[in-house]
Every structure is written in structure tokens, then in C-alpha cells.
Simulated assay, not measured.
Amino acid sequence: SSSSIFCLDAESGEEIWSQETCDSSMSSPAIYDERVFIGGAFLGMPGGGSVFCFNAISGNLIWQSQLFGGDISYSSASISDGNLHIASDHLAGGNLYCFNVENGDIVWNQHKEMGFSSSPAIKDNKIYIGSEDKNIYSFSTENGEELWHFETGDIIESSPSVANENVYVGSNDKFVYCLNVEDGSLVWDYETEGIVKSSPAIANGRVYIGSNSGVVYCFGN
């Protein structure tokens, strides 16, 4: 079986076009300049993953770029300054990739011994992403240089959100963290009743996030 991406009419829900991608895709599509981007994984041997770029109007495939080795991607992409950033996971580690949106060429990649299960957030030319090595990282969008990291007590599957010069993220150690965007220093943390895989939503100066205990939390300034 294979996974597909669908384009539906917003008013009626009728299908406009669909395209098969790979064996498994659990990421959300990103849209930029009338193009749709999504990552996925090919199961079995030799396995691996790809990033796909489709024309948003016609659904035609514009390019497909293969990830390194057996890398698979369940990460959703983020786009900044004409580049697409997406993360991968693999038994031998994982990579944060930067692709050129026009042709799918890899601009740079940042390898870590453990993979990435969360999706990147971008603000002011900086990328924020959680890793299975328990750290949240900040990288430069320009060249992938690591700017800082902050270690939590367990792997991070939550995708960060950025607002008010702070980064907000959950961890499987049951904590919600608020970090300074510039240096990754801890502003505050809060222990919930369960692991936190969901991603923070921010509105009107408040942070909303759920935990696996079935509780939704709201934090103020």
C-alpha cells in the first residue's frame, strides 16, 4: 500500500487532485509559492525516505529528493527565504535538511547521533527543533550551524513554538519548557501529569498544550 496527498475543494470537499507519495507519510504538507511539499518513508528494504514537491494547482510532481542512507521523515517541513527545512530519523542517527525549494538540491544538512521526531520551527533566521537525544536545538537557517542546545529529561517529540522571544516545547519527561531564543537558557518549566508529545499553541499571550494524561494546560506570561 502507499500513501497519497490530496487536494480538496475548500467549499465542497470534492477532490481536485491526488498523488501517490511513498509507503508511509505522517507529516503535514507545507505550501509556498504555489508549491506543496511533503516528506515520507519507503518501508522494507532498502527503505529510506524522500521529500516531494508538487504544483499546488495541477498536482504535477515538480521534484523528488531522496534523503541520505536509510533516513525516513515523518517531520513536517518549514520554509524560510526560499529554502525548505525538514528533519529525519534513522537507526544510525538523523539529519536536519535544508533543501532549495526550486530544484530540491540539498543546501546543507546537520547530522545528530539520535534522530529528530519533531518538526522545525523558524523565526528570525533560526531553526528550533527537538531531538531523540533529549535536547532542543537552535540552528542557523543560513548554514546549519548549531547555535545552542538545552537538554531535557527525555526524548522530545513535541514541535516547538516561538513567541515573545521565547521557545516553548514539551518533552517526554512530562515537562513543558520555556527557553530564551537567544541562548537557550531556561525561563521556566512546569511538570505535567503525563508525557508531552503535543505541540504548543500560542494566542493572546497564553500557551496551550496537552499531555498524554488527558489534560490540557494553559500558561500565562
Rank of each mutant, 00 (worst) to 15 (best):
G115T: 06
A41Q: 13
S118P: 04
F37Y: 15
A77C: 09
I122S: 00
C98P: 07
L84Y: 10
E34A: 13
S73L: 11
G48T: 05
G94Q: 01
F68S: 01
F52M: 08
G94V: 03
Y74E: 10
D81V: 12
S117K: 08
A77E: 08
A87Y: 11
G94R: 02
G59A: 11
L91Y: 14
R35D: 10
W108Q: 02
F52S: 08
V36K: 06
S76N: 11
F52C: 11
N60R: 12
P120L: 10
S65H: 06
S50C: 14
A92T: 06
S118K: 05
I79D: 11
G49I: 00
C53G: 10
I86A: 09
L84W: 10
C98Q: 05
S119D: 01
K123Q: 12
D89K: 08
W108E: 00
S65M: 11
G93Y: 02
E102W: 00
Y97R: 09
A56D: 15
I86N: 08
P46M: 07
S58I: 11
I79P: 07
M45E: 10
G39H: 13
L67H: 01
Y97N: 03
I57S: 10
G48C: 06
H85L: 15
S119M: 01
G44D: 07
D124F: 12
F37R: 06
S73I: 09
N100K: 05
A87R: 14
N55L: 10
K123T: 08
V51Q: 00
D71G: 05
Y97P: 03
Q110G: 01
S65A: 15
E113I: 08
N95E: 03
G70C: 06
G70Q: 07
G49F: 01
W63V: 14
G69F: 05
G93A: 09
Q64I: 13
C98I: 09
M45Q: 15
D33S: 12
K112R: 11
S119N: 05
G104T: 01
S119H: 04
L96G: 00
D71C: 02
A87C: 15
A77S: 05
Y32V: 08
H85V: 14
L91P: 13
S76A: 13
G44W: 04
H90S: 14
L61Q: 12
S73M: 03
G39P: 10
Q64R: 15
G47L: 04
A77P: 04
I72L: 04
S50F: 13
I122Y: 09
R35S: 14
G39C: 14
S50D: 14
M114Q: 12
N55C: 12
Q66R: 09
L67I: 02
D81Y: 14
I86S: 06
D124V: 09
I62R: 11
Q110N: 07
N60A: 15
F54S: 09
F116L: 00
F68I: 04
K112Q: 06
F52Y: 15
V51S: 05
P120A: 03
